[in-house]
């Protein structure tokens, strides 16, 4: 839930999603759901000459389970807030 919330705060920011097949896609984060499926707008694929398959694709839906990394805009991530929220969530897990 925590990570899902983080992604929600980053909507309309530019991110780079790296897939498990080594494809890297940069675009504007439009939405995310509980499975961390991601919708990107205005996409470009890294090394487009080698990967022309998505030349005519302008926006896409990426299955959460095939994501390896997402590069986030550091200036839009409040690390102190994240750490506090993570500690709080860890506490809640303990009580269960």
């Amino acid at each position: 839930m925590l990570i899902f919330s983080v992604f929600k705060t980053l909507t309309d920011q530019q991110v780079t999603v790296e897939l498990k097949n080594d494809l890297s896609i940069t675009g504007v984060l439009k939405s995310v759901d509980q499975f961390l499926n991601i919708r990107l707008d205005n996409i470009t694929v890294l090394d487009e000459a080698r990967h022309p398959h998505m030349m005519a694709v302008k926006n896409c839906f990426i299955r959460g389970s095939v994501v390896r990394y997402v590069q986030l805009p550091a200036e839009h991530v409040d690390t102190q807030l994240l750490e506090d929220a993570t500690r709080r969530e860890a506490q809640n897990q303990m009580k269960r």
Partner: peptide, 21 residues
């Protein structure tokens, strides 16, 4: 996939999803 990394840990969850800087 023969990868490793170091980074400053800011968040994690029960799936071991991580956010690092």
């Amino acid at each position: 996939g023969d990868r490793e990394m170091t980074g400053i840990l800011h968040a994690y969850d029960g799936h071991m999803n991580l956010i690092l800087s």
